[in-house]
């Protein structure tokens, strides 16, 4: 799996060379790599918060609004992740090159996909 990861890393690094845009205001499209990185961060945060050992910290015997704490915690993190993904989704729509292979005949698409 480590190898797979390193291959992915290599792939991502090679991609970086084609990266032309960087930190820009909210409405500007981000580079695809940045988007992927942000998604990865969301994934990492989710993994950290929802699996042990960190999740174990939140297994408490208290209650919030009558709801056992851990249950509340899990659903709250879940909702947070969905909100994060929804916020990112708008950017994804705008920024990622969604050229379908059918459109790939178009020379313009060919250039931008590089």
């Amino acid at each position: 799996m480590a190898k797979v990861f390193s291959v992915w890393q290599e792939h991502a690094d090679a991609k970086e060379d084609c990266n032309i845009m960087n930190n820009d205001p909210d409405d500007q499209p981000l580079s695809e790599r940045k988007i992927n990185d942000r998604s990865m961060i969301l994934l990492l945060v989710g993994c950290l918060l929802l699996t042990p050992p960190l999740a174990g910290v939140f297994q408490l015997d208290t209650r919030i609004l009558g709801i056992p704490f851990t249950g509340f915690y899990l659903f709250a993190v879940w909702a947070g992740l969905i909100a994060g993904a929804a916020a990112l989704s708008r950017r994804i729509q705008k920024s990622v090159e969604w050229n379908d292979p059918e459109d790939a005949q178009d020379p313009q698409d060919m250039d931008s996909s590089q």
């Binding site: 993994c47 879940w78 992740l81 292979p101």
Partner: peptide
Amino acid sequence: GLEFITIYLGPTLVFIGWWWLLRKLVR
């Protein structure tokens, strides 16, 4: 108890963070 939730957390994590894997599969 709450264990059932894991069956839905896994797909959640894949969709929020690894949608580009799915995109690669689709492509």
